[in-house]
Design a protein around this nucleic acid. Sequence first.
DNA 1: CGGTGTTGTTAGTCGAGGCTAATATTCGCA
DNA 2: TGCGAATATTAGCCTCGACTAACAACACCG
Lengths: 222, 222
Amino acid sequence: MQATGAVEDYLKIIYHLVTKGEPATTSTIARRLGVSSPSVSAMVKRLEAGALVERSGEGGLALTSGGKAEALRVVRRHRLLETFLAEVVGVPWDEVHEEAEVLEHALSDRLEQRIDALLGHPVRDPHGDPIPPRTGPHDERWADPLTAAPTGSRFRIERVSDRDPDALRYLAGIGLRPGVHVDVGARTPFGGPLWVTVDGTEHALGLPLTDLLHGAVVGTRP
Amino acid sequence: MQATGAVEDYLKIIYHLVTKGEPATTSTIARRLGVSSPSVSAMVKRLEAGALVERSGEGGLALTSGGKAEALRVVRRHRLLETFLAEVVGVPWDEVHEEAEVLEHALSDRLEQRIDALLGHPVRDPHGDPIPPRTGPHDERWADPLTAAPTGSRFRIERVSDRDPDALRYLAGIGLRPGVHVDVGARTPFGGPLWVTVDGTEHALGLPLTDLLHGAVVGTRP
DNA sequence: CGGTGTTGTTAGTCGAGGCTAATATTCGCA
DNA sequence: TGCGAATATTAGCCTCGACTAACAACACCG
Ligand SMILES: [Mn+2]
Ligand SMILES: [Mn+2]
Ligand SMILES: [Mn+2]
Ligand SMILES: [Mn+2]
């Protein structure tokens, strides 16, 4: 089957849902892609005919090995482009995702390899997302969200979800980027904000925000 | 009307034909685009409905002001991308055209402006083609082909047609690039090669090649 | 003057990728 | 227990952009 831009986007979404443990169903795909359910039904039929996805026992869809390989190629192009745009062109980190979402479908193998070499074969994009290698194994596992970190712990941010530009700008503004350590403070009950200290300054982060930040506890507050 | 990638390519081809003084007809467009005549007929109908082209008295099609503006936007993106790929990414000059042919349809205004600024607002692409400004007048006129230069003259190369990668590689190999001066030697009769001296070395160039090189006579051989 | 290309259009078809409306199923909850 | 909401599919339609087959209008040439 011919991997058009639309096909690539569907495969990528299914890949993201599956690797986050969320079910890849008609409705979740439709919501994430901003498309009607019948459109997804029709596309899934084409993807099945092309042996890129299959119905997986429980609930949703799964990628076949061919579908996963294709999805990884698109994810690789996306994250390489984000890195390239940020590091070489100077595009701010809250804009790179949107640009890469389009360019990922127009990048040739040849140019991908040139960009990869120019960047020195990077392994993480500006949001901390791992860049799948051209061949060989790839680990997409997400670390725990900051939401899950216990009070009094020290937390190292590894990945920041890149889908909301406004959130990204805010987070960058208070110094929250991959690689940064934060001290986890009090948790306000009933869905209230979580207090964290970054660079000596305290901030109250709402749940929508703390769910975007993933990483690992690396000790206790000094 | 929605300017899809296909529409952009049609407008660009019509623009190129018209500015070279060649008629923009169904068959010339079909040949250049590698597409059937009926496909062109249908697309031209859509372009007319969208007020992007109109039948021009003699022979072919003409761009409306809206169609020309759209064509210039695509040409600008194409040539900016070629320049960017060559200067920043290090893509060889015989490959940039093919890559830009695809990327030109995926470049946002925002990114276009960043690249333009990063390059210092270039006015010529790697082949010497003028980059249309974002607004304001643009001169696309082609200088004379080397074919027309008289024996014994000194010729300054301004533009090199970028459509044939093999020819570009060959030309670069013997030092023929925009800005270079050549001494025009004997012209072999009956379509035979033209002798030119570049960098002190004599080369015999066939007609297909001398037609790709455009520029101006800047004096006589010293 | 009568073929024979070349050119352009129409008619009809196709696949991709979207849409709405209608129709099951199933699930949660009063 | 039964009703409404969510979920998925089908049917039917649309646009875009390609294709082939067929046909008309000309031009050129022997
Ligand atoms: Mn995309
Ligand atoms: Mn990212
Ligand atoms: Mn193009
Ligand atoms: Mn060029």
